[in-house]
Design a protein around this nucleic acid. Structure first.
Length: 595
RNA sequence: CGUCUCAUAGUUUAAUGGAUAAAACGAGCGUUUCCUAAACGCUUGAUCCAGGUUCGAUUCCCGGUGAGACGACCA
């Protein structure tokens, strides 16, 4: 099926053709700059003429007039009138065009969704550590990763969502040793604690105990650095890591038991926030990957060995530093595992692109990772893309677990759901709902507010979260969009078939504004995929909802002046509802039928 | 010391080099016999400083100031 081109794409194309015919000048359609016309001028879309004034050696006015007249003469179904102001050619689009658009799109359930393009993409996100529960930063990561995967999916890609669980290493051993020392056999069940929080508590206990021991050693005259290394509990953790690597049965058993507690907790949280993965990798299985590639790199002379037999790569010519890829004791480092995992993913899924949703503190790491893979000429190399996002910070700065300022994911979700419960009760609009229906509604609204809050900002930018101020339910928020949707549904609930031919010839300004905005939905989805940026969609659906609300306040739909108007407004309402649902769905947010 | 990010109304955020910089929250005023007032309308207010490129700069380049991240055989 041939997808109809967007108005903007058509304007570009037609303009390029016009310039070729009128002035015999070749122009790429993409070089035509088309903007929405500013509200203070007459017209819908504007061509910026400056760009080709020079090449064509014409004044903007002459050029604009010739072009404008050509467009109206040759494409009268699209363009109705034009005016030129200071080098801007403002074009008015015919009502006919918008009415046709509405009739073709209002009942098209896949409006904005592309067909499969045969390309595969992997999206890795979440990446939790099994020594503590998820926090606000993980939420931004999860929502972003899930949303990007979804956005790529509707853009035609075959998407594989993956997660690498950091389930081994010294930090896990810290929780384990603390449990051995202080738990007296307690379990999540015996203490009625969620598994990930239970294990996280022992990680905190470890650090408390370590601090105590370090202070004692310092009082004995040992310097801080040595004290931290020599504290008995730290030595015990390090010994445990060695035992783990050696596969000592009782350690492995304890490790498995504690991790299983954590996974039960993670699963509950993921289920609640709607995160899922097609494939989960565990670092305990992948940490040895990449060793072969070190050998290969040495042979290819991409890597070199120092006197102590450690292996390095020299990236100084690329403006970076030297980087170790294998320790002198033969063990691999973080980056080596990632090289190995990149190849592993490539072998398993053969994706054209591999996206890593990881915080911007690791920008350097991913730059190095991609560069090394390229130098090794690995097939996965060029497809590596680090989707770097900014940290979530508090007004006081970074969240610090040691200072207890970390905003816990479960707590925050609870709070959001409670607020939505409270507000729903205050408004009292759904008193006839069953308990199940109410609980589902609270989840929808509370999570909607939270996800929208975290996704409405450009991922690249760090964001401030103030725990003192609760996340808003008014204005540029998830509930605003959900509410708009629910209002439309209440109109559409009255059983009434919407006929395709409305018969109207003209649109009122607010009807037209809505139609124009609806028409750009596919472009908005494309843009957010091209830039890996869900906030583009968040902004789009917010503006759409706003336009609809203005329209709704001004014009009656069910009691429209004429049957024709009623039909065209029902089409507008139905398409708006559908676009809002699809759009906000790409952010992982549900819409309620009533609220 | 070096590399890289960021700096826009009181606050949180928008703006492929294009017209008089756009919203939300906050503050103030108003809107409901009629499809959901979690809404709508009006008022208020900003590009860190100094140069440069350009017909045109929030956007690109140079310098400065301020904030952050990274450059660890941690991940």
């Amino acid at each position: 099926m041939l997808r109809p081109m967007s108005v903007v794409a058509q304007i570009k194309e037609v303009t390029a053709r016009a310039i070729k015919e009128l002035f015999n000048h070749e122009l790429n359609a993409n070089d035509v700059l088309v903007n929405a016309t500013k509200p203070e001028f007459e017209g819908d879309y504007t061509i910026v003429l400056f760009a080709f004034v020079k090449q064509l050696k014409k004044s903007p006015d002459t050029l604009g007039n010739e072009l404008g007249e050509y467009l109206i003469k040759n494409h009268s179904t699209i363009f109705s009138s034009f005016n030129i102001i200071k080098g801007f050619l403002n074009l008015a689009i015919t009502d006919y065009y918008w009415i046709e658009f509405l009739q073709s799109a209002y009942s098209n359930a896949s409006f904005g969704i592309k067909e499969k393009n045969g390309q595969r993409v992997m999206v890795e996100y979440s990446s939790p550590n099994t020594n503590k529960p998820l926090h606000l930063g993980h939420l931004r990561n999860n929502f972003l990763g899930w949303s990007i995967a979804e956005i790529l999916e509707v853009n035609g890609y075959d998407v594989i969502k993956t997660c690498i669980v950091n389930d081994r290493g010294i930090h896990i051993c810290k929780s384990m040793i603390a449990w051995q020392l202080f738990a007296n056999g307690a379990t999540p069940e015996s203490t009625n604690t969620k598994g990930d929080h239970f294990v996280g508590d022992y990680y905190v206990k470890f650090n408390d105990e370590l601090k105590k021991q370090v202070e004692e050693l310092i009082n004995k005259g040992i310097d801080k650095e040595t004290a931290e290394k020599e504290a008995p509990i730290m030595k015990a953790a390090q010994q445990m890591l060695i035992d783990w690597e050696a596969g000592k049965p009782d350690i492995i058993e304890l490790w498995k038991k504690m991790n299983s507690w954590v996974y039960a907790g993670f699963d509950a949280t993921y289920k609640r926030i709607g995160s899922d993965f097609e494939k989960t990798y565990y670092e305990s299985n992948t940490y040895l990957l990449g060793k072969d590639l070190v050998e290969e790199g040495l042979q290819k002379k991409v890597f070199y060995q120092k006197e102590d037999s450690s292996v390095w790569i020299d990236l100084t010519k690329d403006g970076l530093d030297e980087k170790i890829v294998r320790r002198k004791d033969g063990t691999s480092v973080y980056i080596t595992q990632d090289i190995g995992l990149a190849e592993q993913k490539q072998k398993e899924f053969n994706a054209q692109r591999s996206i890593y949703v990881v915080g911007d503190e690791q920008n350097y790491h991913f730059k190095v990772l991609k560069l090394i893979c390229q130098k090794l000429q690995l097939p996965s190399a060029d497809g590596i893309y680090h989707l770097s996002y900014g940290m979530v910070e508090l007004p006081s700065g970074k969240m610090k677990s040691r200072e207890g300022t970390v905003v816990d994911a479960d707590d925050l979700v609870d709070e959001m759901i409670n607020i939505s419960k409270q507000k729903t009760a205050e408004l009292g609009k759904v008193k006839d709902f069953t308990t199940d229906e109410l609980n589902a509604l609270y989840d929808t609204i509370g999570l909607g507010a939270l996800k929208f809050f975290l996704l409405r900002v450009d991922p690249k930018k760090k964001m401030i979260f103030n725990p003192e101020e609760s996340i808003d339910f008014h204005g540029f928020t998830g509930p605003f969009i959900q509410y708009t949707y629910a209002r439309i549904k209440s109109i559409l609930r009255k059983p009434e078939a919407i006929s395709r031919e409305s018969g109207v010839k003209n649109l009122l300004p607010l009807e037209k504004a809505l139609a124009i905005q609806l028409e750009t939905f596919p472009a908005s989805i494309e843009e957010s995929a091209a830039e890996y940026d869900p906030s583009k969609i968040a902004i789009y659906i917010f503006e759409l909802a706003k336009t609809f609300n203005s329209f709704y306040a001004e014009h009656s739909i069910a009691n429209a002046e004429t049957e024709e108007k009623k039909t065209v407004r029902l089409q507008l309402a139905q398409l708006t509802a559908q676009v809002l649902e699809t759009g906000i769905g790409l952010l992982g947010i549900k819409v309620p039928e009533r609220m």
